[in-house]
Write a protein that binds this DNA or RNA. Structure first.
Lengths: 142, 142
DNA sequence: CCTTGAAGCTATAGTAGCTGTAGCTCTTAT
DNA sequence: ATAAGAGCTACAGCTACTATAGCTTCAAGG
């Protein structure tokens, strides 16, 4: 039997985070000690490790919920898991592409700045200048 | 004189977002019509465009506050603006590096999956397997 | 048995940066 | 005069946690 602190230490999650996962139904409600403290088994530890590892790979909690569900049913087709992972890969690639564009624009901005006062600062000029805007991007640039 | 809707259309910001910027002091409180509706001038439009463009480059609002302040004082040294931009560039590069690592792990995971049931799915196996964890990463991966 | 300090408990609020909703009022064209 | 569309305030919700306050429990040492 593990305490919540042990789970935290073993997985790198914060104690509050574990309670949060319980609250949103990602972790099951564990047993309690006589005094009301949470007591976990090894299966809980594994589940939390799975969640944390998935989070480190950037999966959103909803996707993790699906992955856990698949993991709980060994007889199902693994195509679903595969497609969640592929979706996440596409997401990561999208973000990278957007960041690449930002990086280039920032480098250009910085590269053109020749010092002096803010009145002739290229950085501020670029930010002010409407005409050089990136294409509209309403998504998070994350 | 522009309405809030006009500003929104011209900058790509949502109406609520403009009101939000006012609320947090990023946009000034504008004048009002007889009936109490916001009325903006061209300077407001420029300021909002500056904010949106900076957001598109991923600058956090605090950084934008500083950039706007610099932009409002043409006599100051532009080194500050430059260093904010460099900080942002480093941030972008960091995120890209982290995403690159995620991308590789996702690709490996997906590449190894040979179909079948979830019980022998490599994707789920990798997520379950403690020993193959990425180095601990407590930052946002975003 | 008693104390003490670490760890746990609940509940609530805060983070970033918006976005959406409800229920109203204003503007403007016809 | 009316009606559509835009604007108003105030507040809740989003993601995924994180932090705080004020309390209780646990485990070890004396």
């Amino acid at each position: 039997m593990h305490t919540i602190g042990t789970l935290a230490r073993r997985t790198g999650a914060k104690v509050q985070t574990i309670r949060y996962y319980e609250q949103i139904g990602l972790m099951p409600e564990p047993g309690r000690s006589a005094g009301g403290q949470r007591r976990y088994g090894d299966a809980d530890l594994d589940r939390l490790a799975f969640i944390r590892h998935s989070r480190q790979l950037g999966f959103p909690l909803d996707a993790i919920r699906e992955l856990l569900d698949l993991s709980d049913h060994p007889d199902r087709d693994c195509g679903a898991a595969d497609s969640i992972a592929r979706r996440q890969l596409r997401e990561v690639e999208n973000r990278m592409a957007r960041l690449e564009a930002l990086k280039r624009e920032l480098q250009r901005m910085i590269g053109e700045c020749r010092g002096g006062t803010t009145s002739d600062c290229r950085v501020l000029e670029v930010l002010r200048d409407h005409s050089e805007c990136l294409a509209d991007n309403h998504d998070d640039v994350g």
